[in-house]
Design a binder for these strands. Structure first.
Lengths: 257, 257
DNA sequence: ATTAATGTATTGCATTCCGATACAGTTGCA
DNA sequence: TGCAACTGTATCGGAATGCAATACATTAAT
């Protein structure tokens, strides 16, 4: 984000207090415990006074609360009100939800919907079948576009110049030992995805996980997001998983258009 | 919410621009379609100028977007970032999630976790087993405390004076023809819940639905929320549902303490 | 064809937000 | 056990920001 003064000069309509305030809410990213005002001010890049006023205001409004021991702040339930309004009004989520429910019943594996957001795919619907790791149950969890089944599916729907831009600006890291981080290797997956109409990702973000992804087109035939179905390599051979799941995933994605 | 001037006098630390801004996000409650600046200003009780500045700022920050036809505003993906941070840091949600997954596998019905918020119970985890109505899949959806299995379970854990206060200030309405709205009838359900250790709600918020609820204690032995399991009356007799589900629900709630 | 609605842009002014500072209580540490 | 560091909360004068009215171009509705 631009320095304050510069932002004001370049965007006189921007409400700077609001910018500061949202950085307070965003300060909880990458945090595992309640945050003190000092920590909030450090992470949000504002003074302790500003952190105090903003935290106090968010508390009054129901978006933050003091922890039980009174020694730090946490997000509060009001966040879920915003979540609910976002989810129930999102056209794709509304269309997708019954289809995903049916798909989960048919394939008996975890089914997700993620929304395309440049370098990341953000989970907007999670339908578990079996016991999942905690983060695989959470709305809002996001994963990199460059190394996920949903990401490859989405990239496959974009023109090559956009794919190249996204791959060259991605901060690629090895999520698992099997994660592809070589742009050329990823392009090969995209070519295969274009040919097959779906992607197949093996242990890219979770060891032991195999996932099929199919993109969902949005306005202007640009990808809005993807559905993906994940299975466990202790139960599936990858090609068997593909044969079983890919037709169902494609049919489901087609039903969402 | 108090008028602006009054709020400033009574709470000098409150950031009024922030209050206005959050009312813009909250304006999407009860809306089914994108909102124009005029509609936002009307619902949020602010001028069209203020709505423009705030909407513009939220767009820059990723919390709102212009609709595809450019004729209205919607909430955007940034909301899910806040959701994710809220969910993953919430102690009860973390503890509850694996237990609910196991519970859903065992009972093969829909399992939810809701958080107690005075007159409402807010859904924080939804685990579907079968095809559900759309709203039964959404995080953040909230239902009245006075007429739900989770609500009765939570009320049963409160002292009588608090129960009386909540029942006398509730804006009770008939959600279904079976919804209890007589405070005395609800008190009888609470007595039964205290005796049984769980509640049994029949067609209170959805026709055809039977639900068992068990409260989950939080700090100071006050209820933090409840888990509830819902079944369909086309498949279950209520007493059979109770016999089958209640022990499992109670065990699950005990495991979350 | 006209009116009403839309989002966007501008500006002088007054209110609001700001940052520094102080305080009381609690926790951490030697 | 005593001191330092940290915590949340409270205050205030000043200036930067947010405000409201207004205007404009485009689109939709009548």
């Amino acid at each position: 984000m631009q320095p304050k003064a510069l932002r004001a000069q370049s965007d006189p309509v921007f409400v700077q207090s609001l910018g500061k305030a949202m950085r307070v809410l965003e300060a909880f990213r990458d945090s595992d415990a309640p945050l003190s005002l000092a920590e909030i001010s450090s992470r949000a890049g504002i003074t302790r006074s500003a952190a105090q006023r903003i935290a106090h205001s968010f508390r009054e409004l129901g978006y933050m609360r003091l922890s039980d021991d009174g020694r730090g702040f946490l997000l509060d339930l009001g966040i879920l009100d915003l979540t609910y309004n976002y989810l129930r009004m999102h056209p794709l989520i509304r269309r997708a939800t019954p289809i995903l429910q049916e798909l989960r019943r048919t394939v008996r594996e975890r089914v997700d919907l993620s929304l395309f957001d440049g370098q990341r795919m953000v989970y907007a619907a999670r339908l578990q079948s079996k016991r999942e790791v905690f983060f695989a149950t959470l709305i809002g969890h996001s994963v990199p576009t460059y190394c996920t089944s949903g990401g490859w599916a989405v990239l496959a729907m974009l023109p090559d110049n956009e794919v190249n831009t996204l791959l060259s600006t991605a901060e690629m890291r090895q999520v698992t030992p099997r994660t592809l981080t070589d742009p050329q290797a990823i392009r090969e997956q995209i070519v295969l995805t274009r040919q097959n109409g779906h992607s197949l990702a093996i242990e890219q973000i979770l060891m032991g996980e195999v996932a099929i992804g199919v993109a969902i087109p949005g306005p202007g035939n640009r990808p809005a997001g993807a559905i993906h179905i994940a299975g466990n390599l202790s139960e599936w051979q990858p090609e068997e998983f593909r044969r079983h799941v890919a037709p169902l995933a494609s049919a489901a994605a087609n039903a969402m258009i």
